[in-house]
Design a protein around this nucleic acid. Structure first.
Length: 1052
RNA sequence: GCAGGGAUGCCGGAGCGGUCAAACGGGAUAGCCUCAAGAGCUAUUGGCUCAGUGCCUUCGAAGGUUCAAAUCCUUCUCCCUGCACCA
C-alpha cells in the first residue's frame, strides 16, 4: 500500500467535504481542542512540531467519534522580531516573509492530517485581528488597567526593545540571549498586579493542569504575607517603611537596611559626614556592579549612613545601613534586619560585627546537667553548697532559661560513692527526648555515656566537661566500670568535650571519648577541673555558646523569647499579636506582597500591534477613538535596523489630536506579541466578526478550551497572560468563564542526537522526509509509540521502521482476512481491546494504546478466520492515530463514508469473559513451558502428553485463595485430608511462598477444552503428537505435578 | 538553597503492593523460508540448572513496614527542569 498516496487522497477528500468544519449546535455537547499556535518562522515544520499537533489531533478525533461537536482550529502567532530582522537583513518587508511562512505552515499542517477547521484560520498580523488588540487596549485603559509610567525596564540592546519580566531569563533576553540592561523609560504597562490574588487563588480551580505549571505560576506570583512597619528616624519627623514577613521577630531587629538606590537614602545622609562615602557606594553597587548584583554568591556589602532609627516597640536605637543585597523593587526597598532569624541578615551582621539577638526559640528544648562526684560526703559541712548548685551550673541554667530552655540539675544520691543504678533512678525522673542537650561534668560524663549506651536514647547534643572514665579510684568503680557503646555516635547529633589543664586521667579520658565517640574536643585554658575554685565568677560562656549554637540563623517557627509581653507566644500567634499592636499604635499594618510585577507591553519595534494612543501637547495622552480602529501599520517603511522604523515614518506619527484636533504625535511603540496570544483562543470561536472581537454567545458555547496542548516554555508567560485577559474580559462582562483552559497538557520534546530537535541545532527531520519514505501515518504512529506523550523522546530511524512494519501488519491482516460468523473468543478480546484503547486515549498514554492495538492485531493474525465486526472495530480504533490508513482500510472493506465520522466503538463489560482470558493464558503458559522443557532436554519429541490437574485440587485452591491465615500448621489442620495428605502439604507450602496463582477461573474440563483447541497448532509447531489427559485417570506419576492453571508435561 | 520530575535488563521505555526475571519496541544470536539478499515467521537474549515448567541474584544506594516490595515509608547519591540575595 502506498501510504503517501493515500494520505494525499484522504486529505483532499476531507478538505473538499469540509468534514472538520463546525458550527455551534446547542443540541450537541461541544469539545474545544487546541494546540498552542506557532510562530510561523521561515523554516518548515519538523517532526518535533508534529508531535505537539498530533497529540491534540488524537484527542479531537476521538472526541468527534464519541459524538462531541469538536472545535479544533489553527492559527499563526505572526507578529514578532524574527520576521522584522529578516526584513532588515534583506531590505524587504516582514509581511512578505510572514505570508510565505504562513502559507507553508498551512500546507504542512494539512499534510500531517490534522483535523482542523480551516475556515477559522487566523494570523495575528492582519488588521482584522490586531484591530481587537487595540480595542482591548482602549478598554483596559478605560478601566485603569493600561497605564504609562517611567520605570527602570529591561532593555535588550540587540533586539532594540524593552522586555517584560517574564521575558528575561537569568538576566538574558529570552529570544537572543543577550545580556539585558536596565533603562529608565516611559512605557506602557498592563496592571496584572490588580489580579495577582485572583490569579493565585484560581490556580486551585485548575485541577486539569500539571502540578508543575501551577507551582511555577504560584511562585511567579509570589505572594508573601507580612506587615509594613514604620520606623521613626531619630531626631527627625521622617519615617522608614519596611516590609517584613516576620513581624514576630521585631524585638530582634539590630538595624534598618535600605536598598542603595532608595530615594530616602540621599535625604537621610544629607548633612552627615557619611555623605561622600554613601554616594560612592551607591554608584558602585547600582552602576558598576549592576550585573553582578543578582549573582549567586555575591558578597554582602553595606555601609552605615550616619543616621539612627528607633525600634517602635522596644525603643532601642538602631543604626541605618544601605546594602547591596536589598532590592529596591521588592517590598518597600527597606528592611528590618533580624540576624538571629534570617540568613542574609545573619551574614551581614557577622561581617559588620552587629549584635545578634535571639528572639525565637525552637519549641520544647531542654537541658539536663549531671554533676560530678566529690571525694567525700560534704553534705554535712555547713559551708558547702549542694553538688548540683555550683556557680557555673546555676549561671548556665539562668542563661538557658532566658533562651526558652527548660533546665534540670538533678542531685545524685550519695554522689561521693556513685552507684550507676542509684544515679540512673534519680536521673530518669527527668524527661529526655530528641531535643535534649545532656551535659555531664566529671563523673557525670561517665554516667551519661554509660546511660546513653545502655538505653540507646536519641538526643540532640551531648556535652562532656572535664570527663571521667579512666580512674584508679575504687570509689568510682561502680560508675566507671563499663564499655563505651559506639552506637551513641548515631544517636546524638553533636558530641562536644571540654577539657582544660586538668589531672592527667581526665585528659586521658577526654582523649578516649574523642576517639571512641568522634567527639569534638575543645581545650580551654586555665580552668583546671572546672571546679568552683577554677571558675572564678562561675561564668562559662564557651559552654553556653555550644549549647545555643549561634553559627547559623534559626529561620523556622518557634516560641518567642526576649520579646517583652510577647514572650511565650508561638510564631503564628505572635505575628498577629505584633501586627495588632502596631496597628493600635498606628505604626504598621498587615500587608500582602506579591512578586508579580505589572506587565510591560511596550515594544520599540515595527512588527507588532500599534498602541492606539496619541500625544497632544495640549490634551496630554489621548486614546484613539474606537471608530478609528484599526490603526494600521504603515506599509511603506524603511527597515534600517536602527531604532523603531515607525518613529521615522512621518505619515504615521503626525496626526491631529482626537480631542482638540491640533497637531499631535502618535505613540510609536507596538504591543508585546504576548498580547496577541492572550485571547486568540476566543477569536477562534468567531473568527470573522467585524463588529466585535467575538460574539458572546458563540464564545459561551465553545469556551473554555477543553484540552490545551503545548510546551512548558509558556508556563508563566503566555499561560499567565491568557488567564489575566480572561479574568479582565470576565469583569467586562464579555465572558462568563474565569479560566480559559480546563485541561493543559505539556508534551515532551523530540530529541535527536541527544539534543532538542530544532532548526538552529541543525538536527531536524522534516515531515516531508518521513511522508515520502513511509507516509505520514507512520510518522504519527512512531511519535506516539515511543513513550507516553509527556516524555521527551529520542528520534530513532530504526524505531520508525518498526512503526512502518506495524502498519503493514495491520494492512496485511485486513487484506488477507478470512471471515467467519460470530466467535465468542474474538468478541471477548475485541471488547477488552476497545476498553483498553479507550482508556489510554482518555489518559493520554497513547503509547500503551498502540501496544494494546498491536496485541489485538497479533491475536487476530493467529486466528484461522476473523469476524467482520472485529475488523471494523480495529479500523475505528486506529483511526485517531493513523487517520489516512484508517480511511483507506474503511473503504477497502466496503464501507461508505468516512471512518472519522463513525461512532467510537462501545465495549460491553459482560462480554469481556475472564474465562476466555484464563484459557488463553493457560495455552500461552503451556506453550512456553513445553518450549522450556524442550530446551532443557534437547530431544526431538515424538509424543507430548499434557495432564490437567486432579479434580480435588480445584476446590482446595479456591479455599486457599480466600484464606487470610498464613500459618502453615493452621492451614494444614484446616485443609489436610486423609487421601491427599502429603500433596496438600506441598501445595500449601507453595501457596505460602506466593508461587501459586490465586485466581482460578477454569474447571478441569474447561482447561481441557482450551488445550484441545490449541492441539493442532502445537502439533504443527512442535512436530509431535499431543495427548490430553485428566490426571485423575492417568497412571503416570508425572500427572500428579499438575495443578490448576498449570498442566504437567510428559515428553517422549 | 527552594520547588517539581526522574534513576528499571544491551538500548529506548511500560509497570507503581502479590498474577514480575519485569509489557512493547529497537538491537543481538540461532533456526525456518529463499539460488542468494531483503522482507516475513519462530525461538533465545540476568545467572545457575538441564526430565524438567524450578532455584538464585536483579528495577540508583542503604535501612524500614509487610506473610509479600521495582511498587509503600525513611535517609542518602546522582541526573534533569524551573525559580533564586523576594525580607
Amino acid at each position: 500500500m502506498d501510504f503517501n498516496h493515500i494520505a494525499k487522497k484522504w486529505q483532499s477528500q476531507w478538505e473538499s467535504k469540509k468534514i472538520f468544519e463546525v458550527k455551534e449546535d446547542s443540541k450537541k455537547k461541544k469539545s474545544y481542542v487546541l494546540q498552542m499556535f506557532p510562530y510561523p518562522s521561515g523554516t518548515s515544520l519538523h517532526m518535533g512540531h508534529a508531535k505537539n499537533y498530533v497529540i491534540g489531533d488524537i484527542v479531537a478525533r476521538h472526541k468527534r467519534m464519541l459524538g462531541f461537536n469538536v472545535l479544533q482550529p489553527m492559527g499563526y502567532d505572526a507578529f514578532g522580531l524574527p520576521a522584522e530582522n529578516a526584513a532588515i537583513k534583506s531590505k524587504s518587508h516582514p509581511k512578505v516573509f510572514t505570508d510565505i511562512a504562513i502559507k507553508g505552515y498551512i500546507q504542512q499542517s494539512k499534510a500531517l492530517g490534522l483535523s482542523y477547521d480551516w475556515s477559522r484560520v487566523l494570523a495575528t498580523c492582519y488588521p482584522d485581528y490586531y484591530k481587537w488588540n487595540q480595542w482591548f487596549f482602549l478598554k483596559f485603559y478605560e478601566r485603569g488597567l493600561a497605564y504609562k509610567k517611567k520605570a527602570p525596564v529591561n532593555w535588550c540592546n540587540s533586539c532594540q526593545t524593552v522586555l517584560a519580566n517574564e521575558q528575561v531569563e537569568q538576566g538574558k533576553c529570552w529570544r537572543c540571549h543577550n545580556e539585558v540592561s536596565i533603562k529608565q523609560l516611559e512605557q506602557w504597562f498592563f496592571k496584572i498586579t490588580d489580579y495577582a490574588e485572583r490569579l493565585l487563588q484560581d490556580l486551585s480551580l485548575l485541577a486539569g493542569w500539571p502540578e508543575r505549571i501551577r507551582t511555577m505560576q504560584s511562585h511567579w506570583i509570589g505572594k508573601s504575607e507580612g506587615a509594613t512597619i514604620f520606623f521613626p528616624v531619630k531626631d527627625s519627623k521622617e519615617k522608614i517603611e519596611v516590609f517584613t514577613t516576620r513581624p514576630d521577630t521585631i524585638y530582634g531587629v539590630n538595624c534598618i537596611i535600605f536598598a542603595p538606590e532608595h530615594p530616602q537614602v540621599l535625604e537621610l545622609v544629607k548633612g552627615t559626614s557619611y555623605q561622600a562615602q554613601v554616594h560612592e557606594f551607591i554608584n558602585k553597587v547600582v552602576i558598576k556592579e549592576r550585573f553582578k548584583r543578582g549573582d549567586e554568591d555575591q558578597e554582602k556589602e553595606g555601609l552605615f549612613i550616619g543616621k539612627y532609627t528607633v525600634n517602635p516597640l522596644t525603643k532601642e536605637e538602631l543604626p541605618i545601613y544601605i546594602a547591596n543585597f536589598i532590592l529596591l523593587d521588592y517590598g518597600t526597598g527597606a528592611i528590618m534586619s533580624v540576624p538571629a532569624h534570617d540568613e542574609r541578615d545573619f551574614a551581614f551582621a557577622k561581617k559588620y560585627n552587629l549584635p545578634i539577638k535571639t528572639v525565637i526559640q525552637k519549641e520544647g528544648l531542654n537541658c539536663v546537667l549531671v554533676h560530678g562526684s566529690p571525694e567525700k560526703d560534704q553534705s554535712k559541712e555547713p559551708s558547702d553548697i549542694p553538688q548540683n548548685q555550683k556557680p557555673w551550673y546555676v549561671w548556665t541554667k539562668k542563661k538557658l532559661e532566658e533562651c526558652g530552655y527548660k533546665v534540670t540539675l538533678p542531685l545524685m544520691p550519695k554522689s561521693w560513692l556513685p552507684d550507676y543504678a542509684d544515679w540512673k533512678r534519680e536521673f530518669e525522673k527527668t524527661e529526655v527526648n530528641e531535643k535534649s542537650v545532656l551535659i555531664g561534668h566529671s563523673a557525670g560524663t561517665a554516667f551519661l555515656v554509660r546511660w546513653l549506651g545502655e538505653t540507646k536514647r536519641k538526643i540532640k547534643k551531648l556535652i562532656l566537661v572535664a570527663p571521667g572514665k579512666i580512674s584508679s579510684h575504687d570509689r568510682v568503680k561502680a560508675l566507671y566500670d563499663f564499655k563505651i557503646n559506639k552506637e551513641i555516635k548515631k544517636l546524638v547529633d553533636e558530641i562536644i568535650i571540654f577539657i582544660s589543664n586538668d589531672a592527667q586521667h581526665h585528659i586521658d579520658s577526654a582523649k578516649l571519648y574523642e576517639k571512641e565517640l568522634d567527639g569534638q574536643l575543645i581545650e580551654i585554658e586555665n580552668k583546671g577541673h572546672f571546679r568552683t575554685s577554677n571558675m572564678g565568677m562561675g561564668e562559662f560562656p564557651e559552654l553556653l555558646e555550644k549549647i545555643l549554637d549561634r553559627s547559623t540563623a534559626y529561620t523556622d517557627n518557634g516560641i518567642l523569647i526576649n520579646s517583652g509581653s510577647f514572650n511565650g507566644l508561638s510564631t503564628q500567634k505572635a505575628k498577629s499579636a505584633v501586627i495588632k499592636e502596631l496597628q493600635a499604635k498606628k505604626i504598621g499594618a498587615a500587608k500582602q506582597h506579591y512578586k508579580l510585577r505589572d506587565w510591560l507591553v511596550s515594544r520599540q519595534r515595527y512588527w507588532g500591534t500599534p498602541i492606539p494612543m496619541v500625544y497632544c501637547t495640549k490634551c496630554g495622552i489621548v486614546p484613539v477613538p474606537e471608530e478609528e480602529l484599526p490603526i494600521k501599520l504603515p506599509e511603506k517603511v524603511e527597515f534600517t535596523g536602527e531604532g523603531n522604523p515607525l518613529a521615522k515614518t512621518k505619515d504615521f506619527v503626525n496626526v491631529n489630536c482626537p480631542k482638540c484636533k491640533s497637531p499631535a504625535k502618535r505613540e510609536t511603540d507596538t504591543m508585546d506579541t504576548f498580547v496577541d496570544s492572550s485571547w486568540y483562543f476566543l477569536r477562534f470561536c468567531d473568527p470573522h466578526n467585524n463588529n466585535a472581537p467575538f460574539d458572546k454567545d458563540k464564545v459561551k458555547y465553545w469556551m473554555p478550551v477543553n484540552q490545551y496542548t503545548g510546551g512548558t516554555e509558556h508556563a508563566i508567560g503566555h499561560l499567565l497572560y491568557s488567564r489575566f485577559f480572561t479574568k479582565v474580559l470576565h469583569d467586562m462582562n464579555m465572558l462568563d468563564i474565569e479560566e480559559p483552559f480546563v485541561n493543559l497538557f505539556n508534551q515532551g520534546m523530540l530529541h535527536k542526537d541527544g539534543v532538542v530537535m530544532s532548526k538552529s541545532k541543525g538536527n531536524i527531520i522534516t515531515q516531508d522526509e518521513i511522508s515520502q519514505k513511509y507516509g505520514i501515518d507512520t510518522g504519527r504512529w512512531y511519535l506516539m509509540s515511543v513513550a507516553s506523550p509527556d516524555k521527551d523522546i529520542e528520534w530513532d530511524d530504526k524505531g520508525v521502521e518498526g512503526s512502518f512494519r506495524a502498519l503493514n501488519k495491520i494492512v496485511a491482516l485486513i487484506e488477507n482476512a478470512k471471515y467467519t460468523a460470530k466467535e465468542e473468543r474474538i468478541e471477548a478480546k475485541m471488547h477488552k481491546t476497545i476498553k483498553e484503547v479507550s482508556e489510554t486515549i482518555e489518559s493520554m498514554t497513547y503509547n500503551m494504546g498502540l501496544i494494546k492495538l498491536m496485541e489485538f492485531v497479533a491475536y487476530l493474525q493467529k486466528q484461522p478466520a476473523i469476524t467482520k465486526e472485529s475488523v471494523e472495530v480495529l479500523i475505528k480504533l486506529i483511526s485517531p492515530f493513523v487517520p489516512h490508513l484508517a480511511e483507506e482500510l474503511w473503504e477497502m472493506t466496503k464501507h461508505k463514508g468516512f471512518v472519522c465520522q463513525e461512532d467510537w466503538p462501545k465495549y460491553n463489560e459482560k462480554k469481556i469473559n475472564p474465562k476466555i482470558d484464563a484459557a488463553e493464558e493457560l495455552v500461552e503458559n503451556t506453550t512456553s513451558d513445553i518450549q522450556a522443557v524442550l530446551n532443557l532436554v534437547k530431544i526431538k519429541p515424538k509424543e507430548i502428553t499434557l495432564f490437567v490437574a486432579e479434580k480435588w485440587k480445584y476446590p482446595l485452591f479456591k479455599k486457599l485463595h480466600q484464606e487470610e491465615n498464613r500459618d502453615f500448621s493452621v492451614l494444614m489442620k484446616k485443609f489436610a485430608d486423609k487421601e491427599h495428605g502429603q500433596d496438600v502439604g506441598k501445595i500449601v507450602q507453595q501457596f505460602m511462598k506466593g508461587a501459586l496463582k490465586t485466581d482460578i477461573f477454569l474447571s478441569p474440563e474447561e482447561e481441557l477444552d482450551a488445550l484441545q483447541e490449541s492441539k493442532s497448532v502445537w502439533e504443527k509447531q512442535f512436530g509431535a503428537k499431543f495427548h490430553l489427559v485428566h490426571a485423575d485417570s492417568a497412571k503416570e506419576p508425572k500427572a500428579k505435578q499438575a495443578i490448576p492453571g498449570k498442566v504437567a508435561i510428559l515428553i517422549k
